[in-house]
Structure formats: C-alpha cells, structure tokens
C-alpha cells in the first residue's frame, strides 16, 4: 500500500489562527452595531440614509481610486465599509448628503488609497474625511450652493427634533456662556443631542470597544490613555471631566479611530504616549479654541508622529540587556586588569 499522491510544499508554519483582515473589519462593524441602532432609533430614516450614503460613497470611491491605480476594488476586505460607517457616525443627522459624500471621497480616495492603500496610509481615513470637510469649508459652501434644494430629510419624533435643533452638548460645554443641561446618565445611556450619530450613546460605544478588546483587535493602551488624559486635565482646569468624556466624538474617536491598526503606534509604550497626547490636544482644542470637532484633528496630528513614536519606543531583543551588561562587565574587568 504505497502512497503515490504528490503534496504541496510550503514553508512553515503549516497552521494558522484563522484571523483575517476581513474578519477583523467585520468585528469592528459588529462592534459599531449597538451605537448605530441607538442612532437609528432616534433619528429614524435620517440616520439610515446618512449611513447608506457614506457606505455607498466609500465603496464607489474605493473602486474608482483603485481603478486609476490599475487595481481591483478592495471592498472584500471590508475596511472601506468600516471607514464609511465611522464617518457617518461622526456626522449629525442634519448633515447634507453631499457633505457626507465629499467627506467620504476625501477619506477613502485621498486619506486611504492615494496615501498607499490599507497598510500604508499614514492618517486615519475617517478622521481625515471628517477634518477635511471642516478645513475645506469653502468647497462645502460651494457644494451647498450647487445642491441647494436637493436636500433629503425624513420625519423624526417632535422631542428629537427639539433637541436636535438646539445646541449640541459639545457646544454647551465648550462655550463659556452655556452650561450642559443634559444629565450625564442620559448622555451615557441614550441621548438625541444633535451631535454626531455616535454621540447618542456612550455606553453602546463602550460595549463595542469591549468586544474589540475581547477579540484582541485593540489593546487598552490607547483608549485608556486618551480618556484618562482628558479626565485628568479637565479636572485640573476646574471642569467636570464627565462633561468632556461623554460629549463630542471623544468616545468614538478614542475607541474606534485612534485605535485604528494602521495609523497608531505598534509598541505598547508608544500607544500610551500617543493616547495621552491626543487627550491633551483634545482638551486644548475644546477649552482654548472653542467648540470645534477637536477629536479628529487631535488624532490626525498624532498620526503624523506615529513613525517617530514607534522608533523611540521599540523594545530590545530578548537578552539584549544581558548582552550589554556582560559587555560592560568585561570592559571594566579588562580596564581593571
């Protein structure tokens, strides 16, 4: 009974954990489902429409941008869907669809593909798109004029309409004239405040973050140091830290944008430095520069320093310290002799 079959020869290891990029992206989308559902509960079809627009724009931009480079669309790795979804969650339900499309094109076309594609992009694509439409306000104004009258909006319950048309919680805490009139518990659990879709429930975001942590897609270092730095600094500055932790895109940014694999440091100490500095920047933006979407800018600024942070915080090889010690001991011994 001789076995005559031929088998493929490949290098080891011959087994793998089964982790894949699409699986991780799918996990990220799953982690965002709770907050997406809360947003849809409050904003109804407005949220569905905005998310749909961003996802569609992300897929189309990816296909076009990659076609230009002569490559196949990368939608199957699901990462453009993650970018589209996070971007949609950054926007308020009243955002015009063309602004959302513009942001998505910036995020996927420039922030990701033009910068080298998944793995090489230096800046978090969603943060890039979100900040891009703010920086390129003139373009948005131009678009507003072009598309005036094309706006799409759907009915919402009267309570929600009331709170959405008022000041957002972020504006309240960031303007000296105003005070936050929404209870913290409500911000934590469920609140239609007119800010980004993701601002409807910090708890839903935390649930998603816990799932990513459990699946080992993220580590605690970045979220804990961002939120910790914001809490400590705002306390020192005499604010109520809960005001800051629960408002604006901070939770979404700390758990889902700053933790983006490609654009965050790969060393643990580096991740802490990265997170603390993002926290510092967020507080500076909010406290000293008024009500801006400081989180996206803070993340982008720190994204630029990732290669440097990585280089400065690399660990030594196994036994390197001992090898150095032995060399030093030998040097002293020879000197003594």
């Amino acid at each position: 009974m001789r076995e005559e079959r031929k088998f493929s020869v490949t290098e080891p290891p011959h087994i793998s954990s089964g982790e894949t990029v699409p699986r991780a992206m799918l996990d990220t989308i799953l982690a965002l489902v709770p907050v997406t559902l809360v947003a849809i509960y409050f904003y109804r079809l407005n949220a569905v429409f905005l998310i749909g627009v961003c996802l569609l724009a992300a897929v189309v931009t990816d296909a076009v941008a990659r076609k230009i480079k002569g490559r196949k669309p990368s939608v199957s790795d699901l990462s453009v869907l993650v970018t589209g979804l996070i971007l949609a969650l950054c926007f308020s339900p009243l955002t015009n669809w063309w602004t959302a499309v513009f942001a998505t094109v910036l995020a996927v076309g420039i922030g990701k593909e033009w910068m080298g594609g998944l793995g090489w992009n230096r800046f978090n694509p969603a943060a890039f798109g979100r900040a891009g439409v703010i920086v390129l306000a003139p373009v948005t104004v131009f678009l507003n004029r072009q598309f005036a009258g094309w706006n799409v909006s759907f009915p919402m319950s009267p309570d929600v309409v009331d709170s959405v048309s008022g000041a957002t919680p972020l504006t309240m805490i960031a303007s000296p004239q105003m005070t936050l009139d929404v209870p913290h518990l409500q911000l934590l659990l469920a609140n239609p405040g007119g800010g980004g879709l993701a601002e409807t429930s910090a708890l839903a975001l935390l649930l998603g973050g816990a799932y990513l942590l459990y699946r080992q897609h993220i580590t605690w270092h970045i979220p804990v140091s961002i939120l910790g730095a914001v809490a400590v600094l705002t306390t020192i500055l005499g604010h109520n830290p809960a005001d800051h932790l629960l408002t604006g895109g901070l939770m979404l940014g700390a758990l889902f944008m700053a933790t983006d694999w490609v654009t965050s440091p790969i060393t643990d100490p580096g991740r802490i430095i990265f997170g603390v500095l993002i926290g510092v920047l967020v507080v500076v933006f909010r406290v000293f520069l008024g009500p801006t979407e400081g989180v996206a800018f803070a993340i982008l600024i720190m994204n630029a320093f990732v290669p440097l942070i990585d280089r400065l915080t690399r660990r030594g090889v196994f036994g390197q310290l001992n090898a150095a010690k032995a060399a030093a001991a030998k040097a002293t011994a020879t000197k003594a002799a």
């Binding site: 490949t10 290098e11 011959h14 990029v21 793995g119 897609h217 490609v262």
Partner: peptide
Amino acid sequence: LAATRDEYHDCVRCQRCVRACPMY
C-alpha cells in the same frame, strides 16, 4: 488545517506578531 500563504496582504500593523514574538 493546512495554511497556505501564497496570497497575502500588506502588513496592517495589527500588533499581533509583536505580541507573539518570543524574541521580542
């Protein structure tokens, strides 16, 4: 069970290999 690595992606910097490497 048999893993093949003919098709692969650019590194996405997920840190898993850094956590796994016993030689640091």
